[in-house]
Every structure is written in structure tokens, then in C-alpha cells.
Design a protein around this nucleic acid. Structure first.
Lengths: 328, 328
DNA sequence: CCATAAACTGCAACCGGTTGCAATAGCCCA
DNA sequence: TGGGCTATTGCAACCGGTTGCAGTTTATGG
């Protein structure tokens, strides 16, 4: 069922049907009524693909996310998709993984699909290869990078102040008299580097420059558990541990209580993200809140502003806050 | 940059360029090489929208999910999207919420986008209104309903045996000598009804027909906490509690330990979904595993089989299993 | 009742591809 | 060198819409 079918049966041209479908003026009320009746009768719904081709406006945006199962990205993707859907855009979603090759591959697919904008969710996108792929495939459409920065005229970034955030976590513990601290990092992304930097900076600020014990873990419970066991072996007198992600921290808290340490009595713990995992943790986890809701909302608005041709800042730096629960 | 631009510069017709792009035979090697060189030079990438219009194959599939933030649906959506992406399909994702109106609205949008298939993730889709909307808007393309069933020739359902699953949870507790049991349900979806039915059936099987204490909670920690407090007030001698969802169960476990009950010493607990929340819970949660990975993989394969014109069963019933951890 | 403006309506070109079919070119062999 | 084939190539129609512009109605007013 196409507008031509409707037109034929109504005894008019496709132009008139098109005008009715698009609520444009210039159609006699009687004609309009006849067309609308037929549309209703045949349950007509217009082919958006064809319309997109003709109007050069696909009304689609691409969402690339490293892995949507990461709780933090799930929420971001949800917010962005909802915000866009409310404005009539369709979201094409791809999980890219962290490899440059795959990320660039999907950027090209988005080009072929003529998306009007792109949102990149995840810290794996802040690489030269991705930057080059954007310049090559999507030089003229707005691209929003949630949590990161790329120096390209059409890329807009939302950043949280990782350095300041981590430093203030250290400061919080220092105020409670704890300066023998360890830090467990996860991915070696730019954002991960900033967090580490914030931790080291915080240590320096409380007079323990060069003393930061740094460990590594993959992003899962078990890795957090094991890294923490290692910390306890190597530094039994540790007074506080910071984790780059709540999930790892949850594993850490379990390791601490399992080995008889009181939390926060013996060892204080702080995670990052302030997600549901922190609430589930026992005792409940104190966490650095990078204000996910605001950052996704900001990312969505940045994109929408550009889509609707309003100006938008190329970088937005969001504040952080510490949500104290039971582990500090 | 279109195939016409390439054609002009190569001194050939668009047909030849099209043949080269699609790796079709019938182009002289020299011509092919010249065209390929130009494509490379201009970084040409074909407009898939136009191709879709022409070939009547959009290579897009729609994924409707009640709310992707529900951990269970996140994982399902991820699996399905990955499986489809690997076969060259784009996924259009919408969060519909549970309202019929909104669900039908998005079904219509998918029709307009000419998707080749649809995956519905969530138990909110098993309603007469959705059934009617599918019959009306998408009567000819395969629709897979993950966790549910609709009686339509083009709809394929993946179901888990909720009745049997819950009944066997009750049986497990009964074997441990616990028959004073409560059940906390969440949504009143068809699947929720089946779980309740399974619980009641299990109670009947161990000689306590009519004795099942049934409570309700929304799907969050706090609601689980409160429902459990209520259970303890009204039935202080409860020996075991089943929860329709792990997240609610986690709130329940917290309520139990907070009020001094030993878990599982005084009260045993079982959740459903076997998701990460169960691992985070302290003590770790025993959970009914409805085999998410298998059900999403099955859903994806069902759709792919139909897309590639192979036969597929209209209903697949998946087995369940109980993963015992520390709360039983 | 007619001139003139305003309101409708439809033609045709265009968006960027695909593809059946006819035309042309190139090749082999007698 | 001519005939018969096959390999290339391009024309033109089609996918399902949109839209500028010109032609046709209809309404208004004198």
C-alpha cells in the first residue's frame, strides 16, 4: 500500500496524498477528508525509507556503545535513546567492543545508513583511529562522545572531572585519618588514566606523593576480590582502598569481610559510578557519583541542539559528588 | 558522492558501478579496476537507504524492549543485537515501557521503517492489543517474542517453564524441611501469573494447598525490603521466601538480616533470573536460572532462520535449573 | 456577469540505488 | 574476412516518496 494506491482510489494525484500525509496546506477539505478516509480504511502508513531518501533526512541516529551490558552504559544508552525517541528519531544501536577496527567498521555502517547524528558511549572511542574514521566517514554530522574528547569540529564531548573526583576521594579518606591507601584501576583508557592521575594527585596533596599503591583488575567481581587479597597480602596495614568501578569495589568489599577485616573499621572503601551495585553491596558502598543521569541528558541535549541547528559547546565538564554510604 | 559521480569520472554508466559495488560478474577486469580505484580515492560508501528502497530489503530489524535497564533485558538485547549484527543486520532499538499504547506506537514506527523482522523483549508484550497491532502493522514479517507467546502465524515465541521452575523451587525448600513459605511477586504479566501458578502448584504438591502466602512488590530493592518486613510481621514463623526477581530478593535478604534473622538458618531465600545481583547479595543468593543466554540465543536464531527462509518452530520451551548458592 | 486573485491540483524531476533486456564490442574459427 | 558467440555495457523503468511550478478551479468583489 503506497500513496499511489491511495491516490488512484481517491481519484487524485500522489502529490495530494503526500500533502495530506504531511499535514500540509493547499488541499481542499473535501479532498483531504476523502484521502484520510481511505488512509484509515487501508490502515495506510507511509514508507519512511522512501521519504528519507527524498527529503535527505533519515531521522535516524546511531548509538555506538562499547558494551551495553556495562551498567553505566546501559543507563546512558537508555537516556539518550529515550530523549531522541521523544523527538521522533530512531536509534540504531551497535555494540562495538573496544577494538579500533570494529569501532571504525560500525562508523562506516552508520555513514551508509545516512544517520543524522551519532552518540558514542564508552571510553574506548577516544583514540586516533576513531578520530580518523569520524573525519573520513562522518565529517559533517554531529557526533557526541559521552565521556571523552576528540578534537574534531563536529565532535562534542561530555566529560566528568575524573581527576578532581578521585583526588577528592583521597582527601575524604585523609580527613578521616587514613593515608595508607591503595587504588585498583581497570581499563587503561584515557578516562582511566585521569582517574589514576587524580588518585596520585590526591595522595601528593596529603603528603604521600609517590606512595600510592596501584593495582589492576578486569571489570568483574572476581578480579576485584583477587586484587584485594593481593593488597592485603602485600600491605596488611592498608587503611583504605579506592576502586575505579563499583563492581570491582563490590568484589573488594567481599574479600575484605571474608578475610576478617571490618569495613570501614579497618579498611574504608570507595567505588566510582554510584550505581545499583553499591546499594546491593554489604555494607553499602560509598561511591564517587559522576552524575550519569546528567551526563547522558547533557549528551542527548548536545546532539539535539546540533540537530536542530542551535549552537552547542564542544566540551561540557560535569561536576562530581561523593555519595557516602557505609564503607567510609 | 554517489555511484553516478563515480560513474561519470570513470566514463561508464552507474550500472557498472553498481555491479562492482555488489561484486557481481559481468564487468571487464580493467573497468572494474578503474572503478575500484575511484571508489578508493573518494572513499566511496554506498547509500544503504537507497539500496534498501530499490531492493526492498532494509536489512534492519526492530528491537522493542520494555525497559533496557532491566538487567535481564539488557543481556537479552545484547545477545540478539550481536547475533544480528554478525549477519549484517542493523538493530533499531526502542524502549516502549509497558503501556499498550506506546508498544503499538512503536510497532507502527517499525512498519514505516520497513524492518525485516522484529524482536520483542519483555513480558509486557503478551497482550491482545499488541497482538492486534502486529496483525495490523506487521502481518508478514517474522516477529520473535522472547519470553511470551502470541497466537499469530508470523510470531515465534521463546518460553521458559515458569510453572515448573517455581514449583521445583518450592520442592527444593520442602526437601529441606521448609513448608511455611511466602512468595513475593512483581508484575501481573502472563509470565508473572505462571510463576505464581507454579508456586501455588508447588505448595499443593507438598501438601500445603491453599496455604501459600503471597505478597507484592515493585521491581526494586526497597520494595523487596518492605514486603519482607511485612511478611515477618504477619508470619514471624516463615521458613522460606521466594521472590519473582533477584533484585527484589536482594532487598528481601537485607531485610531479613537487618531484623536479625539468619539466612538461610532461619529463613531460606530463592530468587529468579540468576543474574549478577545474586552474586553481589550477601549471603549469595540461590536463584532459579531461566537460562537467559540460551533463550536470547534461541530467539535470535529463530528470527534468523525465518529471515533466511528456513522453517522454525512457533514455540520453544526452555528448561530451567536452580543455582544453589548460600541462601538455601 | 466578468475580471482577478486565491486556492487547489497534478506534472515531472529528483533522491540514490538495482536490474532486465537490448545493443555493442570483442573473440574464435572456418 | 565474415559469421556466430559470448562478454560487456548502458538504457530505462522502478522502488516510494517530495516539491517547485504551471495550469485549473473556485471565490471575491465590483
Amino acid at each position: 500500500m503506497t500513496i499511489y494506491d491511495i491516490a488512484r482510489e481517491a481519484g487524485v494525484s500522489a502529490s495530494s496524498v503526500s500533502r495530506v500525509v504531511n499535514h500540509k496546506p493547499g488541499v481542499k477539505p473535501a479532498t483531504r477528508a476523502k484521502i484520510e478516509a481511505l488512509m484509515e480504511k487501508y490502515n495506510f502508513s507511509l514508507n519512511e525509507t522512501a521519504r528519507g531518501l527524498s527529503t535527505q533526512a533519515s531521522k535516524m541516529i546511531g548509538i555506538l556503545v562499547t558494551d551495553i551490558r556495562t551498567i553505566h552504559y546501559t543507563d546512558t544508552a537508555y537516556c539518550v535513546a529515550q530523549e531522541l525517541a521523544a523527538r521522533g528519531y530512531c536509534s540504531i544501536l551497535f555494540n562495538t567492543g573496544a577494538s579500533d577496527e570494529s569501532q571504525c567498521h560500525y562508523l562506516q555502517i552508520l555513514e551508509q545508513r545516512s544517520v543524522e547524528g551519532v552518540v558514542l558511549i564508552g571510553s574506548s572511542f577516544q583514540t586516533p583511529a576513531v578520530q580518523a574514521a569520524i573525519a573520513r566517514h562522518l565529517p559533517n554530522i554531529p557526533v557526541v562522545l559521552v565521556n571523552g574528547y576528540l578534537d574534531l569540529p563536529n565532535v562534542y564531548g561530555v566529560l566528568s572531572d575524573d581527576v578532581g573526583g578521585l583526588a577528592s576521594c583521597v582527601a575524604l579518606l585523609a580527613r578521616k585519618g587514613r593515608t595508607r591507601l591503595a587504588y585498583v584501576r581497570d581499563a587503561k583508557t584515557p578516562s582511566g588514566q585521569l582517574k589514576l592521575q587524580g588518585y596520585l594527585q590526591g595522595m601528593a596533596a596529603c603528603g604521600r606523593a609517590g606512595d600510592g599503591w596501584v593495582y589492576e583488575a578486569t571489570t568483574d567481581l572476581q578480579a576485584g576480590y583477587e586484587a584485594t587479597q593481593q593488597i592485603l597480602r602485600e600491605h596488611p596495614d592498608v587503611q583504605g582502598i579506592l576502586y575505579s568501578v563499583d563492581l570491582i569495589a563490590a568484589g573488594g568489599v567481599r574479600a575484605l569481610t571474608d578475610s576478617g577485616k571490618a569495613v570501614p573499621g579497618d579498611v574504608a572503601v570507595i567505588g566510582v559510578d554510584n550505581c545499583l551495585y553499591g546499594e546491593l553491596c554489604n555494607p553499602r558502598l560509598t561511591s564517587l557519583d559522576n552524575n550519569l543521569l546528567q551526563s547522558s541528558a547533557t549528551g542527548a541535549m548536545l546532539l539535539i541542539d546540533r540537530l536542530e541547528n542551535r549552537d552547542a559547546p564542544h566540551q561540557v565538564l560535569l561536576p562530581y559528588s561523593i555519595v557516602e554510604r557505609e564503607t567510609t
